[in-house]
Simulated assay, not measured.
Amino acid sequence: MSLKPSVSATDHTQGNLTADLVIVEYGDYQCPYCGAAYPVLKELMKEFGSQVKFVFRNFPLSEMHQYARIAAIAAEAANLQGKFWEMHDAIYENQRDLNENLLMRLAQELKLNMPQFEKDLESTKLAEKVDSDFESGVLSGVNGTPSFFVNGNKFNGGAEDLIGLLRENTV
């Protein structure tokens, strides 16, 4: 399966934004497997960040994970204040305690404008962004999280496999 739509300016990206190697993760903030992949992906970016453009797309499995969708919207709300990756990381680092109170506490710790953040959590525009990411995952053949795409093609493996692949190909 291939990635639909391809990576664009509306995506959350980090690393080398002009890199030839583009890795896309479809993730759910409450998914334990995504939580386990998070430190591996941090390691990957530490080691290969200058060679990789990393993209995160929301894929909240709301039926299984009560707080996945609100967490995704919270990360999008933080994005409006220039703190997407900080919120993304903070949620994963506190995943075990994930609930609405935690999201508020993290927003305060990130020194977000709280009245604005609370208003943005209610925004239909942000909910639509999360839904749009989710729909793109469905179109791309994502059936669980985390799911990875490398240069637009579905990668059949986990974060450890990704880091192994990079180490093999960059030596």
Rank of each mutant, 00 (worst) to 15 (best):
T10R: 11
T10P: 00
T10V: 13
T10L: 13
D11T: 02
H12K: 10
Q14G: 02
N16R: 12
L17I: 09
L17F: 06
A19P: 02
D20G: 14
D20T: 14
D20R: 14
L21F: 13
I23M: 04
I23W: 08
V24M: 05
Y26W: 01
D28E: 05
C31L: 12
C34L: 10
C34R: 07
A36V: 01
A36H: 05
A37G: 04
A37D: 08
V40I: 15
V40Y: 00
L41G: 01
L41K: 01
E43H: 12
E43L: 15
L44T: 15
M45T: 04
E47L: 14
E47G: 09
E47I: 10
F48M: 08
F48H: 07
G49Q: 04
Q51E: 14
Q51L: 13
V52Q: 06
V52F: 07
K53E: 09
K53W: 03
F56D: 09
F59Q: 10
P60Q: 00
E63D: 14
M64F: 11
R69S: 13
I70D: 11
I70S: 11
A71G: 14
A71R: 10
I73A: 02
A75D: 07
A75C: 11
E76H: 10
A78K: 08
N79V: 00
L80P: 00
Q81T: 07
G82D: 07
K83Y: 12
F84N: 01
D89G: 07
D89K: 04
D89Y: 02
I91D: 02
Y92E: 04
Y92T: 03
Q95N: 00
Q95E: 06
R96F: 02
R96M: 08
D97G: 03
N99Y: 07
E100Y: 11
E100R: 14
N101D: 15
N101V: 04
L102T: 08
L102A: 04
L103F: 06
L103P: 03
M104V: 12
R105K: 14
L106S: 11
A107M: 09
Q108I: 11
L110I: 05
L110V: 06
L110C: 07
K111R: 15
K111N: 15
M114N: 04
M114I: 14
Q116Y: 13
E118K: 14
E118R: 15
S123K: 00
K125S: 08
L126A: 02
K129M: 11
V130Q: 01
V130G: 06
D131L: 08
S132D: 12
S132K: 13
S132W: 03
